[in-house]
Nucleic acid binder design. Sequence first.
DNA 1: CCAAAAATCATGTAAAAAGGGGAGATCCAA
DNA 2: TTGGATCTCCCCTTTTTACATGATTTTTGG
Lengths: 204, 204
Amino acid sequence: MKINVFIVDDHYMVIEGIRSLLQNEPGIEWMGHATNAVSCLAFLQNQLPDVILMDISLPDKSGIDLCREVKEKYSSVFIIGLSTFNQKSFIQKMMEGGASGYVLKNASQQELLEAIETIARGRTYFSNETAQTLRKNMETEIILTRREKEVLGLIAEGMTNNEVAQKLFISITTVDTHRKNLLEKFKTKNTASLIHIATQMKII
Amino acid sequence: MKINVFIVDDHYMVIEGIRSLLQNEPGIEWMGHATNAVSCLAFLQNQLPDVILMDISLPDKSGIDLCREVKEKYSSVFIIGLSTFNQKSFIQKMMEGGASGYVLKNASQQELLEAIETIARGRTYFSNETAQTLRKNMETEIILTRREKEVLGLIAEGMTNNEVAQKLFISITTVDTHRKNLLEKFKTKNTASLIHIATQMKII
DNA sequence: CCAAAAATCATGTAAAAAGGGGAGATCCAA
DNA sequence: TTGGATCTCCCCTTTTTACATGATTTTTGG
């Protein structure tokens, strides 16, 4: 029995690339593609693939959210995260959202096939580099609370504690506490490196 | 006469995607691909394409450097920058490196063809979004001096003025001056937003 | 419902950055 | 050779952060 594959990605070239890579594979049936979250969900109302290849960045919604949504509604589909970024925070989030694996866009045909076949069997798959990244950063994952993310974002925009406090209708000392906790979580000693790291990690 | 096209990109799927998009085009001859700068240069020693589609991020060398190098050696080839990032700094640098245009990876088949054909005729081409970005930021290009970049990098690492001064064997007040000038150039009012913007622009 | 996590607020001191203004030395290109 | 850009240095004041320590109130997940 063939594995029905669907892809969600806003990059035409990637869609074409994957289609081309999978076209002549006897074990795989290409069901089609979507370039955004909405049309993906629309498609799923009529047809259910076995495996969805899903980009983490989509125009209308993050792949992470879409992943969660799809898994809630259709728990039987298996999702493979797809991205050019080999970054822990994304992988982690995608997995939390219910993905079964993660493949980088520079994956070879073989790797891609392996991922699809492994995941269609209900197992998990990570491309080599990804697995490495996961292991390496597993213990250094930084989890922020909603409020901390909010404060961090405003600080990155150049706001002072005072301004953030006014914006969020809280005390300056509270903002200061959040800031301290952020410095603590990121193991940094000042705002400059905090913002630098957080920006690189695409948290802000 | 057919336009000979070559592609340099470390993402297999993108290569396949473009190949698939161009395969049945009568006016275009697919010459092959390279996944890194070295093999690209090796290829060019034997054969010279009319147009090279070049990713800005390659494993061994930045596309910007490769672009410059290729144009120096083979001034007759036209280069199209290829990227998922619609960011001014990249586009600008790629153009300075001698590229004739810039296309985003979510370009449609039509857009891609248009770009190749336009550029093969010696003209320049920008995808819609790209052109917009270019215009929008044309006047806001930020040029830093060597010393400023150096100081900026150290600040991003979490160093204080004092620490930077010791590291660079200069006075604290000098570092302070550089910092002030950086804030001025970036039109920011504190270090947090300075680092945020600079990091996003990949200056650090 | 209850414990844990998150968000809130406070006081006080020390350190660092922001903002303003001024100025000499060097190097490079027109 | 001269003017512009860059790098260097200094003083002073105010604002903002960093660090230490402690505590109360919501939220939230099991």
